[in-house]
Nucleic acid binder design. Sequence first.
RNA 1: GGCGGGUUGGCGGAGAGGUUACGCAGCGGAUUGCAAAUCCGUGAAGACCGGUUCGAUUCCGGUACCCGCCUCCA
Length: 454
Amino acid sequence: MTTIRLHNTKTRRKEDFVPIDPANVRVYCCGPTVYDRAHLGNARPVVVFDVLFRLLRHVYGADHVTYVRNFTDVDDKINAKAAETGRPIRDITEETIAWYHADMDALGALRPTHEPRATDYIAQMIAMIQDLIARGHAYAAEGHVLFDVRSFADYGQLSGRSVDDMIAGARVEVAPYKRDPMDFVLWKPSSDDLPGWDSPWGRGRPGWHIECSAMSFELLGAGFDIHAGGIDLQFPHHENEIAQSCCAHPGAGFARYWLHNEMLQVEGKKMSKSLGNFFTVRDLLDKGIPGEVIRFVFLQTHYGKPMDWTAEKAAQAKATLRKWRGLVAGIEPAPSPAPAVVAALADDLNTAGAIAELHALTGDPAVLKASAALLGLLDDAMGDWAAAPAVDLSAHAAHLAALREAAMQSKDFAAVDAMKAALMAAGVEVRMSKAGVELLPGPGFDAARLPGLC
RNA sequence: GGCGGGUUGGCGGAGAGGUUACGCAGCGGAUUGCAAAUCCGUGAAGACCGGUUCGAUUCCGGUACCCGCCUCCA
């Protein structure tokens, strides 16, 4: 069996991946807060960990992997949007989830096994918070419940920080009811105009981190294999999840392997609203950049390195994929992918290396197609963008062939060159060889610009 | 201030302590009426300074610069 190696953020080294139960490999990935369209940066972990999902399914069997990615549908950003627009919260989250699905589907990401919503697990969160209080790791104060970071000796271990260092950095909210400035909220009170649930501490809503602890426990158990997400979540989100889960379920170990993807940049700079280079996945799709092209660009960079999105990369990726799609058109995929591609992916998801191996497979389209599938590429379902326009150019081809034949005799190629130029201007690729004339509508084909046949 | 990532040939981007990465572009050739497509061949690298080593772009230490997280935006 293939041994997968993964860089574990928790230990800061590459380790052999040994699942707790090979018959049920369990992965949790932090999903989006659903208040707006997913931007390009949101898509990187989705694509990267989709490849992990595919690899695990390949190695352990499609029915032996459970992949959970949550929707955060209770959050102050959602509340703010509701207040701003006057729309019900449920409308906003439903609409945003539908957008998210459509956009991530377009990127060729498989749907996770479970996509739990935070609001469906409020009771479980309350139970976990009660348990944490009972165990002496949390305390209620002024309608809030706070996690006591000093009660968990390993707090800061994942991100390599100590509580004292962080306080020295001093950018934490100073609330009078906190025992320690680093204590974070498990539960907070809601005013009447905000979403809230009844709890032992009054009407309120959960803090951000508790949902992932509660939902991963419900769906994957107290100990599971892999926890994934963006490196920006390493602190405080994942640190706090660990604190909550390890204190609520001592000895279970929570997640064994932590995978974090580095951030995305745009043309060398951070994508941000203030720099004006902020855009969504949908913006790119609407601009005619196929989801498969976005996916290819993402996978050209190892997930652990910052990735730079550039228009140039998108153009090159599109050309490569177009070429490959030409090779595999109508080909049945081979029964299994190339071992070199599997080996590259098994080496800490070396997607760039895997793509290099795909280049070596262009002589064997069936294996190329089967191997590309592990990366979620060259799938029939997402190839419409590369399909040649269905047009019959045989009359043009015959006409051009006739002109050419005459020119061969007369040595005057003016008419041939004129027609060739006109065809090329219409986006047709013109191939003339001793075998004859071949016309292929290209990417920029425009039937309206085809030359007449006179 | 604390923590983390990066720096490879014109561009993108990997692996490996010693042997060609790969892709795109370029150049040369085959082919073509000319092209296109295709095929063959080919030059070009490892931020800087030290150390370990028979040998380092690859390991170790330091410097510089870029980027991110710690703060609403991933």
